[in-house]
Design a protein around this nucleic acid. Sequence first.
DNA 1: GATAGATACCTTAAACCCTGAGGTATGTCA
DNA 2: TGACATACCTCAGGGTTTAAGGTATCTATC
Lengths: 119, 119
Amino acid sequence: MTAKRTNPDFLNGVPELLILQLLDRRPQYGYELVKAIRTSSGEAFAFGEGCVYPLLHRLEAEGLLVSEQRKVGNRTRFVYSTTAAGRARLADSRAVWEQVATGIRAVLQGGAHERPAVV
Amino acid sequence: MTAKRTNPDFLNGVPELLILQLLDRRPQYGYELVKAIRTSSGEAFAFGEGCVYPLLHRLEAEGLLVSEQRKVGNRTRFVYSTTAAGRARLADSRAVWEQVATGIRAVLQGGAHERPAVV
DNA sequence: GATAGATACCTTAAACCCTGAGGTATGTCA
DNA sequence: TGACATACCTCAGGGTTTAAGGTATCTATC
């Protein structure tokens, strides 16, 4: 009922983009990534573990990520990093994001005149 | 075959923002709005009627829009326009969008320097 | 050595949104 | 008459995120 939303709307698929970008910059493990999304977005996003972990598994199953098991004391960490396919997908996702942002900007800035997209 | 344009990801809640913005600029009826979203976004979006009509009804039920019935020949058109509450919501949604865009930009532009938020 | 809290991983039901397909009816044109 | 665009509407389905919960290890304090 009371859907106390921590994250704003407008974010379908955004976690995937952010995860690919952050892991491409630096391999990380899940728990670390959850916090990195918060901090590196300037607190704009706060995706929970229930969002991030399933995504990591899905992206790995798709061959976009690989995980490496590291032992720290008695504890196991799964460090994820991007594959070549993952970097290609990241480039795609960034391009899609550009189109979305451009499209919205066009509407918000009184798009009285529609300029033919560069595409 | 017309290139059946499926919409990209990253758009949860975007239709609401665009509808409020477009109706705030100029009152329109549903069918017209469906096309306006396509053209004014530079073909970036193509939300179908199954998305737009339910949204118009919901936004009207929330008091953000009002509809006026106009007869054209034998045909009825429901022209929607924003209310004061609708304009307030539009301002909110635009602000949320700014935050989202800023947050994503921060991550994409190598957030090498993560400035600890002024907590 | 007990307790509490942070770390680290994982799963699940529910809610939400958009898609795609379908339905009804009117206007226009050949 | 038929075909097509206009104009409204609904619904099942699939995909995504949330909120809540579960397990287990590490660290600190008392």
